[in-house]
């Protein structure tokens, strides 16, 4: 199974006019995500593996792949540390 990142169990989110509102499962403060982070969250939650998310963020923002990689992997790191998403599948 390719590497994926899913929202952790109990984490909820809602679509807002200018992004997303993420409600952590531990009852911590809500996190307001604007673009492009809102798109990264949604694409991960839809089950896109990170390379596909990078591809789509590059297309969406009209930026080079390397810049899109930074956007996506920074977000993954922040949200994993905050316990909002967790890794599934992939090697290692």
């Amino acid at each position: 199974m390719p590497e994926r990142y899913d929202p952790t169990s109990g984490t909820a989110w809602s679509v807002e006019p200018r992004g997303l509102l993420v409600l952590p499962s531990d009852g911590g403060p809500a996190l307001r995500l604007e673009y492009p982070d809102a798109a990264v969250w949604d694409l991960l939650a839809l089950g896109n593996p990170p390379p596909a998310v990078v591809e789509k963020i590059a297309a969406m923002q009209g930026i080079p792949r390397t810049a899109a990689e930074r956007t996506v992997f920074d977000a993954i790191l922040r949200w994993t540390r905050a316990g909002l998403i967790m890794r599934r599948g992939g090697d290692g």
């Binding site: 809102a38 798109a39 923002q61």
Partner: peptide, 8 residues
Amino acid sequence: HRTRAAAA
């Protein structure tokens, strides 16, 4: 997502 981002 581009529509929402551009609108924002």
